[in-house]
């Protein structure tokens, strides 16, 4: 565990708790893509099946359990408790356009042709694109609430920090996992445009709105 990995994980944790807190506090999930949240839920569930087969550390188990629980709670708030506030008209990205190709790719390109490994690979690939419905929704409405922007910034930072973690691990531990690295880079690249808007607007106290 290096500092980049730890701060990355904490940033990830902060992101998902921030989103849950925002929805709970405002009693509204307006501007939040339920589809992105369903896909993140799918990511955690398919990746952390090893909770039942492998024990790594208390830290590892606790974080995995929190990620799964928070993801399910977020989905529940969006689709059940605060369903009336869910902006489904703007959340029109088709999930099957991501899930089907990603599932196919996980079958074709993986480390090992076993059920757990294919599901793990699927989750890595799916995570890299799961934010697209949320970004698509923002591009449709042309704006995002400030807390939603903070959520996206923390979530994007997590993957960017993981890249630094992989560089560190490659140099100091000789470790690298090509599938995770490539998918992680793709995921981080998707945030670049958003990072730019975040730094130029939200950090200067303005709401994130897209140029007309």
């Amino acid at each position: 565990m290096n500092i980049f990995r730890l701060v990355g994980d904490l940033s990830h944790l902060l992101a998902i708790l921030l989103l849950l807190w925002k929805i709970w506090k405002t009693r509204s999930c307006a501007g939040v893509s339920g589809k992105s949240q369903i896909m993140f839920g799918l990511v955690y569930i398919t990746r952390y099946l090893d909770l039942f087969t492998n024990f790594i550390s208390i830290y590892n188990t606790t974080m995995k359990a929190i990620f799964i629980a928070v993801a399910i709670a977020t989905i529940y708030l969006i689709y059940f408790k605060f369903k009336a506030t869910y902006d489904s008209n703007h959340d029109t990205f088709r999930m099957e356009f991501l899930i089907v190709p990603v599932g196919g790719l996980a079958f074709l390109v993986n480390h090992d042709f076993t059920a757990l490994e294919i599901l793990w690979t699927f989750s890595i690939y799916l995570e890299s694109v799961a934010i697209l419905p949320q970004l698509f929704m923002i591009s449709k409405t042309g704006e995002a609430e400030t807390i939603t922007s903070h959520y996206l910034f923390a979530l994007g930072s997590y993957r960017a920090l993981y890249i630094v973690n992989w560089v560190y691990r490659y140099y100091f531990e000789g470790f690298f996992d090509l599938i995770a690295i490539v998918a992680g880079c793709v995921q981080t690249i998707l945030y670049c445009d958003f990072f730019y808007l975040y730094v130029t607007k939200v950090m200067h106290g303005k709401k994130l709105s897209l140029p007309a």
Binding site: D9, N54, H111, W120, Y162, N165, F175, D177
Partner: peptide
């Protein structure tokens, strides 16, 4: 193995 190692990441 390489696979086992990556599984310690979240």
């Amino acid at each position: 193995s390489q696979n086992q190692e990556v599984k310690d990441e979240l």
